[in-house]
Design a protein around this nucleic acid. Structure first.
Lengths: 146, 146
DNA sequence: GGTTATTAGTTGCATATACAATATAATTCA
DNA sequence: TGAATTATATTGTATATGCAACTAATAACC
């Protein structure tokens, strides 16, 4: 007989995805630690670099992040001088962009990112990486691209 | 020419995995919200149910969770009366187990879990789910099973 | 033009996560 | 047996995450 507990324990997608997320996040965070940077922060910096002028709502659409989360996450990036908020005509908007230091930091982080990416690729395998890309692609919102 | 920023943006495993983690976690959390339960909490309750008497270190090995994280995560579960700490000979140990209410909650959560699991399966696809299982299996530590 | 609706972000609150440092207890070993 | 080591978990600090409620400003509408 298979109990509900056994079923959830052995098949739950959230359990596995969250576990894998912890492990992989730690791979990148370990590699990036000498730079005083976390992979969650590098993500935001890279998206910002791609956008040039980054509007919070757009970044949140791209990353499927709650706006309140981004609002707080950019604070330490600002405090470290990696990005800056740019005033605009629309007084509600709080777009931000990379600073020169932020750009330099991304370039400095590339070797560490490559090493973590290598480890993550090894863990997931070619097929795992492909499936991940496929799922992420499914989640792209129309018109929200970089 | 492909810049470093473009490469990271388009290929980073952590970016995609973390994004997918947010989306899938929200699927389950939305489904479980009427029960006042989050999927992270359900995970811990289910592991506890499987173990009977759950030792923090063992749970952390199973879930690849930092012990300090678990130490704090069980607090609200205790406060809600879903699990209880059981004293033991070894005064350092703080093993815990489900309460009757905790068991009932899991059973009550099954339909919501099933619906979220259905949605997550649809998002990841058969192959995606299989790849996820494969990666999670790779992370099992020897002797740490349930 | 003034009221209403919409849009853009922030703040309050709760939980999740991990590293570093700590506390405490059990074990080892000289 | 007493000191050093090891094991188990918690606390301090910082970041990540999202919901609900809020503020402020723009747009829409009558």
């Amino acid at each position: 007989m298979t109990t509900n507990v056994e079923t959830i324990s052995k098949t739950c997608i959230a359990v596995r995805l969250r576990l894998l997320n912890r492990v992989v996040t730690n791979l990148y965070d370990d590699a990036l630690r000498p730079l005083g940077l976390k992979v969650s922060q590098l993500n935001i910096l890279v998206v910002t670099a791609r956008l040039g002028l980054a509007r919070p709502a757009k970044v949140c659409d791209l990353l499927h992040l709650d706006t309140s989360t981004l609002s707080r996450n950019i604070k330490p990036l600002q405090a470290n001088g990696w990005l800056e908020v740019v005033p605009e005509e629309d007084a509600r908007a709080q777009p931000f962009r990379l600073t020169a230091q932020g750009k330099q930091l991304i370039e400095k982080a590339v070797p560490a990112w490559e090493e973590a990416q290598r480890q993550a690729t090894e863990l997931l395998g070619r097929d795992g990486v492909a499936q991940l890309a496929k799922a992420a692609k499914k989640l792209r919102k129309p018109g929200v691209e970089i």
